[in-house]
Design a protein around this nucleic acid. Structure first.
Lengths: 213, 213
DNA sequence: TAGATTGTTAATCGATTAACAATC
DNA sequence: TAGATTGTTAATCGATTAACAATC
């Protein structure tokens, strides 16, 4: 069994590197090159590929173009991925307009907020009342939501998302949401990441000889 | 050797749970409780604690108050942690005012941008010209920076940060920055997280019997 | 051909867990 | 005391890597 979270994360990284190589005019690539770029061992690159039946040619490496196409297929990003942003505070609004999404074929189709003052159905990316969420999710067949509400509302809104039929949540609220059989959750806790950074820093300073994680 | 990134991440999670338990009036806690809250095994909680010499009492568990104090000390968050935000676009500005930081004793002391129109040294959190960065980092002894510049500028600005003496970078730019002996890097690639989410979702749908990562 | 690189197997490594003696 | 929980050891598990035969 290969499709662990770690493998998926690496496949996505390989793909991103490959796209950069392609834009530089590369036609073929060796496991060695990808390993260096992503920071893993060449053996792991080949192993990851073999799990998904991605093959190369001995001595000739892998075809960049073909590899990208097949990775896109495996990763299911052949087509545009549609998401909604729930909570249009500062973080939410920034995410709605985040430029990095377009390049990855991710499109934010709507934002939602409880505050009537924020609602604006005619904006380029409409902001709608949160009560309309279940209806929109159903009619637009949205499967993934970005959750950017305050901590106090997070658990409750998350439940609402799940019962509306959302299958994946990228959670920016500073609370550890747990996945279930009904929903996959990815938590991004910014303050926690910073805390960890300070902490890793301290350990790095105390034990300068050890290698970096 | 225990202080891997994973252990540090878990210690921070334990601490956050403990703070919530404390606010609920808990005085003692068992490894079992913490394990459930964080989603790991009780044995792992005890192991993590023993690595850092955190001991409890058999049958009486751990003292919440004391445990928090000692975790804070171990994690080095006894005092206020000061950071700067580099790049004051939408994400950067949102991060400068992020409420989640205050609770974790993280303070953004300044923002930096290349755009003179954004510079505002008299704002509550001043925004300064990026050329002043090396000076500010030195005089204010800043060790950690949040990088929120566009992809095209990221590598170059990161180098500038390192030569200015920054020791830790939380990178929001959609580029995989690598750490070195001089700097610890934590990458948060929002688009990549979303892509992974879509992908995990697909695998979860194809293999409904398997457990969640 | 000689040399290089893949695909895969077996070995290694590290992290997690089961289990249990100690003991409150 | 009996029962419960810690702290730790040994076993397990899974992921990574080393190594090498196949072969281009």
């Amino acid at each position: 069994m290969g499709a662990t979270k770690e493998v998926v994360v690496r496949l996505t990284k390989y793909k991103n590197v490959l796209e950069k190589l392609r834009s530089l005019g590369f036609v073929k690539v060796f496991s060695d090159n990808l390993a260096d770029a992503v920071g893993v061992s060449p053996a792991l690159v080949r192993k990851d590929f073999s799990v998904f039946g991605l093959t190369g040619k001995k001595r000739a490496g892998y075809q960049v173009e073909e590899l990208i196409a097949r990775l896109n297929h495996i990763l299911g990003v052949d087509e545009v991925q549609r998401v909604i942003v729930v909570g249009c505070g500062k973080i939410g609004t920034a995410l709605m307009r985040y430029r990095g999404f377009a390049r990855e074929r991710i499109r934010v189709i709507a934002g939602f907020d409880v505050d009537p003052a924020k609602v604006d159905p005619n904006a380029p990316i409409p902001i709608r009342d949160i009560n309309e969420l279940p209806y929109v999710v159903k009619s637009e067949k949205v499967r993934v939501a970005i959750l950017a509400v305050p901590e106090t509302a997070a658990a409750q809104v998350a439940e609402m998302l799940v019962s509306a039929g959302i299958k994946g949540i990228l959670n920016f609220a500073p609370i550890l949401l747990k996945g279930s059989r009904d929903v996959v959750v990815q938590n991004i806790n910014i303050a926690l990441e910073l805390e960890n950074l300070f902490c890793l820093l301290r350990f790095a300073e105390e034990h300068p000889e050890e290698e970096r994680p």
